[in-house]
Measured scan of single mutants.
Amino acid sequence: SELMNSSKLIRMLEEDGWRLVRVTGSAHHFKHPKKPGLVTVPHPKKDLPIGTVKSIQKSAGL
Rank of each mutant, 00 (worst) to 15 (best):
F30P: 00
K45Y: 07
G51M: 10
S6V: 04
L62Q: 04
K31D: 13
L20I: 08
H29A: 09
S1M: 10
F30I: 00
K58M: 11
V39H: 01
I50R: 07
G25R: 14
S6W: 05
M4P: 06
H32C: 02
S26N: 12
K45N: 12
G17W: 02
A60M: 04
P49D: 15
I50K: 07
K35L: 04
E2V: 06
S59A: 15
M4Y: 09
F30A: 01
K8I: 15
P49M: 06
W18N: 00
P44A: 05
E15D: 15
Q57C: 14
P44E: 04
I50A: 10
H32V: 00
D16A: 07
H28V: 12
H32Y: 01
A27V: 10
H28N: 10
H32P: 01
V41M: 03
V21G: 03
N5L: 07
L20G: 03
P44M: 04
K8V: 15
L62W: 03
L62H: 04
S26G: 08
T52K: 09
P42C: 05
S59T: 12
G25T: 13
P44T: 05
E2P: 08
H29R: 09
V39D: 00
V23L: 06
S26A: 10
V53R: 04
E15N: 09
K54A: 10
H28S: 06
D47F: 13
K54Q: 11
V21I: 11
L9R: 01
V23P: 03
P33Y: 07
K58V: 11
K35G: 03
G51Y: 09
P36C: 10
I56F: 01
D16G: 05
E15R: 08
M4A: 09
L20A: 09
L48Y: 02
L13M: 06
L3A: 12
V53S: 04
R11A: 14
V39G: 01
E2K: 07
K8M: 15
R11F: 08
P42L: 06
E2T: 07
N5P: 15
V23M: 10
L38H: 09
E14S: 07
P42H: 05
R11H: 11
Q57K: 11
E15C: 10
L20Q: 06
N5G: 13
Q57T: 14
I56L: 04
I10H: 02
R11M: 12
I10Y: 02
H32T: 00
K54D: 10
E2Q: 08
L38T: 15
S6P: 03
G37R: 06
S7F: 12
T40G: 06
T24E: 14
Q57G: 05
H29E: 15
